[in-house]
Design a protein around this nucleic acid. Structure first.
Length: 823
RNA sequence: GCGAGAGUGGCGGAACUGGCAGACGCACGAGACUUAGGAUCUCGCGGGCAACCGUGGGGGUUCGAGUCCCCCCUCUCGCACCA
């Protein structure tokens, strides 16, 4: 049937509007606890409401929707919610630019994006929608904060922090990339500020250990988190300081090299440094080094002596103390014992300044000579010149020496982490207020839980200058001390938005009345009780930041008694980026494809289908305008097939003949083979591209067979096609389902199950190899014996020609697969 | 430097535990229907006239290797003076 002929023309806009309306009317995707059914919680990382969706969103949410819709058809009780990560800096920047308050700007964006998501036909339970900027959301976050404070899991301290001058705020370590702000790429500087922290380091071990149990996460993400946590086993060693009643503590992973120490190196910011050099000739040189380090964190090894000394814990030898540019205050104790013979950095510094090099570990079959070494030996070996430990293997010596230190009260075995506590204060307006009050009389006072929420005022003027507008908002700042009733001021820092996104997955399970607890225990038990969200989907860029914070906060909420959960996300799917012309789509590169335009021109189903077909989810997806055309063509072809099939299609429910033959059998088999393939691809492998390819083959098969096949067999094939396509292109599949005579909606249908009888073949075609090369093929009964198969193979003229009457040295028959003959 | 992943037609990508390399789609070519087609349908489409050769390169295991093992090359991502 030609296009443009009346009602049979596929008009995506009309079809999609119709079905979206019906789904909304029926609340078709409302999630309910149904004890008889398997729970399934599928979640995509919620978006920041920037105002417009981009192709990355289309991809992310299409992937989630396929899973959600397929699981529903499979009979699971599916929870598939959506919300908005609504706090954050862009709202403030927009407010400064166009004078619109962040709250108005944000809510307007949410409205626009919600409409776009609805136009995509994503099957969300819209009744559970949330936004982190609403007081009914962040009041619970404030409660968590207070409980964490009471448990010393939140604390405030003066600290050197990362400061972005452009964003005028503090950044977490995780938000600094190559010395630059993760958002605006400004050079990050250091500042000393009173800051709030979450004690994530208290969970370092558990966060690391539980990674081993997250078998449903990509290895890549687990490795990244492991490296980020950075656990090192070693020893702390305390060196007595000469002339002071104090000890200098260092961390080392190589206590076995203790006898090779020839000097100490301190970080320039080490708190002991000023005391050591004050009023000495070294003071100036140390200050200069510190200044240089502040300016540039890279370069060669530099160091200056402080003139101070400490003593070796075992030998009592005098050891000079240096300050070195490469020693990091943030790691270990900010001080190291320098062993030039066995650490390359110490080696370089020692060589530059003529400091002694003392070999204490000799590698197997070699004899290191300090005068002729070109590099430090960092490998294992046997200890020499190490007192009572001489002769030990270095691995053994590590333990012995650490134990000896512990026995002498001079240190002992310890574990060090790279992970730092999470700085959560932000000197910004558009975030959740930290529920703290400062009273002149009582000092820092937590807001009583009964006074929550501390509501963020929305009537603020943002000028972009003069710090946080909260500080200038008298009605917010000025308050009464909850303890003494006297005048007090509120904390004007707000919480990092990553705090908001660390627990939202659980908030979709909010109780209906919302009065006393943040989560509905029954719903939590049902949808999260099997070990967290069943399938979480989002970009790899959150591998450390969001995913580590969410794991941490989940464990905190568990320990606070809010969630019975060790981990938030059982299975993680990290989807790749959408690329065009080899680069990530971005406004600055001018290679952005607007999903709205795509939907207008081709329809949401085409947009979805392309983003699912062009690449498997975890790979980057190269954009192709022609590829989109191809998907559109396929849907038009499907439309014409179903509408043009006429009397060749039996009414719904028609029974397939008990033992079909010929074309009927072939189509019947193809149908069931496709069911099997698509089910594995969608449910187990999450390879939607090959699932769609399989359905395309079935559609081609139907088009070929329809004129000859029995109408009941065609009906089975068509119905199967539409069922299998329902998760991918729900609108057009629903419309064709209805147009072909069904009255019940497709989304309430069951996922098809392959009939094993239709999957077995009576005859199989097998390729035949002679001496490892393909020489022919034979068709034999599927249950033929090995001898029969070989006989059949030898009967093939091609095979015969290559065997040439020679005796068979070996024969391999792989059932249904192949015959291999060796002569 | 350390860690992870990936190299397959002109392109995106298939090939589950070793078993017919290139499914499906795009692009391209030929034909059909047409006043016309950038619509639709049919056929073709890794290279080579052929024997044969082909999954980054070189070895190996095997009846059989894109897949397993060893060495090397290239690219992408993450961390990066972590003591």
């Amino acid at each position: 049937m030609a296009e443009g002929e009346g009602p049979a023309r596929y008009d995506p806009e009309a079809v999609e509007a119709k079905w979206q309306r019906r789904w909304a009317e029926r609340h078709a995707f409302a999630a309910r606890v149904e004890p008889g059914r398997r729970p399934y919680y599928v979640l995509e990382m919620f978006p920041y409401p920037s105002g417009d969706i981009h192709m990355g969103h289309v991809r992310n949410y299409s992937i989630g929707d396929v899973i959600a819709r397929q699981r529903r058809m499979q009979g699971d009780s599916v929870l598939h919610p959506i919300g908005w990560d609504a706090f954050g800096l862009p709202a403030e920047n927009a407010a400064i630019q166009n004078g619109q308050p962040p709250a108005i700007w944000t809510r307007g964006n949410i409205d626009r994006m919600r409409a776009q998501f609805k136009r995509l036909g994503i099957s969300y339970d819209w009744d559970r929608e949330l936004a982190t900027c609403e007081p009914r959301y962040y009041r619970w976050e404030q409660l968590f904060f207070l409980r964490m404070l009471a448990r010393d899991l939140a604390y405030k301290k003066l600290s050197l922090v990362n400061w972005c001058p452009h964003c005028a705020t503090v950044l977490a370590n995780e938000q600094v990339e190559e010395g630059r702000c993760w958002r605006c790429e400004s050079e990050v500087t250091e500042r000393e500020l009173e800051q709030w922290f979450f004690r994530i380091t208290a969970y370092a071990d558990e966060l690391l250990r539980d990674l081993d149990r997250l078998s449903g996460w990509p290895e890549r993400v687990r490795t990244m988190q492991r490296n980020w946590i950075g656990r090192s086993v070693g020893a702390e060693i305390r060196f007595p300081l000469e002339g002071r009643d104090e000890r200098l503590a260092v961390f080392t992973t190589r206590p076995d090299t203790l006898f090779g120490v020839t000097f100490m190196s301190l970080a320039p910011e080490h708190p002991l440094v000023p005391a050591l050099v004050a009023g000495t000739p070294a003071e100036r040189a140390v200050a200069e080094l510190a200044a240089r380090v502040r300016a540039t964190r890279s370069g060669g090894k530099e160091g200056v002596p402080t003139g101070a000394f400490c003593r070796h814990p075992f030998t009592g030898a005098r050891i000079p103390i240096w300050v070195a540019n490469f020693v990091l205050m943030e790691y270990g104790t900010g001080a190291i014992m320098a062993v030039p013979a066995h650490d390359q950095r110490d080696f370089e510094l020692a060589r530059a300044h003529g400091l002694p090099i003392r070999v204490v570990v000799q590698p197997e079959g070699e004899r290191l000579d300090p005068d002729h070494m070109e590099a430090a030996w960092e490998g294992p070996g046997r200890l020499v010149d190490s007192g009572e430990f001489t002769g030990l293997e270095s691995e053994v010596a590590k333990e012995r020496i650490a134990a000896a230190l512990a026995a002498g009260g001079q240190g002992g075995p310890t574990v060090s982490y790279r992970l730092r506590d999470w700085g959560v204060s932000r000197q910004r307006y558009w975030g959740a207020p930290i529920p703290i009050v400062y009273c002149d009389a009582c000092g820092m006072v937590p807001v009583p839980e009964s006074d929550l929420p501390v509501v963020l005022p929305e009537d603020v003027a943002l000028t972009g200058t003069g710090g946080s507008p909260l500080a200038a908002h008298a009605a917010f700042v000025n308050t009464r001390c909850p303890r003494c009733g006297g005048p007090a001021r509120r904390e004007t820092d707000t919480l990092d938005t990553f705090v908001d996104s660390s627990w939202y997955f659980a908030r979709y399970l909010a109780p209906r009345d919302d009065a006393t607890v943040p989560f509905d225990a029954r719903e939590v038990g049902y949808w999260l009780g099997e070990g967290g969200v069943h399938r979480y989907i989002g970009g790899i860029e959150h591998a450390v930041l969001h995913l580590l914070y969410a794991r941490f906060l989940t464990k905190v909420l568990r320990d606070l008694g809010f969630l019975p959960l060790d981990e938030p996300f059982q299975n993680l799917l990290t989807q790749g980026m959408v690329i065009k012309d080899g680069a990530k789509m971005s406004k600055s590169k001018g290679n952005v494809v607007d999903p709205d335009y795509l939907i207008e021109r081709y329809g949401a189903d085409t947009a979805r289908l392309f983003s699912l077909f062009a690449a498997p989810p975890e790979k980057d997806l190269e954009w192709s305008d022609q590829g989109v055309e191809g998907m559109s063509r396929f849907l038009h072809r499907l439309w014409r097939l179903v509408h043009g099939i006429g009397p060749r299609l039996a009414p719904p429910g028609a029974a397939v003949p008990a033992s079909p033959g010929g074309v009927d059998l072939e189509l019947h088999r193809l149908t069931h083979r496709t069911i099997a393939r698509v089910t594995v691809d969608v449910v187990e492998r999450l390879h939607f591209n090959t699932a769609i390819a399989a359905v395309m083959e079935l559609v081609t098969g139907i088009a070929d067979a329809a004129p000859k096949a029995a109408p009941a067999v065609v009906r089975e094939a068509v119905d199967t096609t539409l069922r299998l396509l329902a998760p991918f292109v729900p609108h057009v599949a629903s419309e064709l389902w209805e147009a072909s005579g069904h009255t019940a909606p497709l989304d309430a249908e069951r996922w098809p199950v392959a009939d094993p009888a239709a999957l077995v073949r009576e005859v199989v075609e097998m390729p035949v190899q002679v001496n490892g090369r393909l020489r022919g093929r034979v068709t034999v009964p599927a249950d033929a014996s090995e001898a029969d198969v070989v006989a059949a193979a030898l009967a093939d003229p091609q095979v015969q020609a290559h065997v040439g009457g020679r005796a068979l040295r070996k024969r391999v028959v792989v059932r249904g697969r192949l015959v291999s003959l060796v002569v």
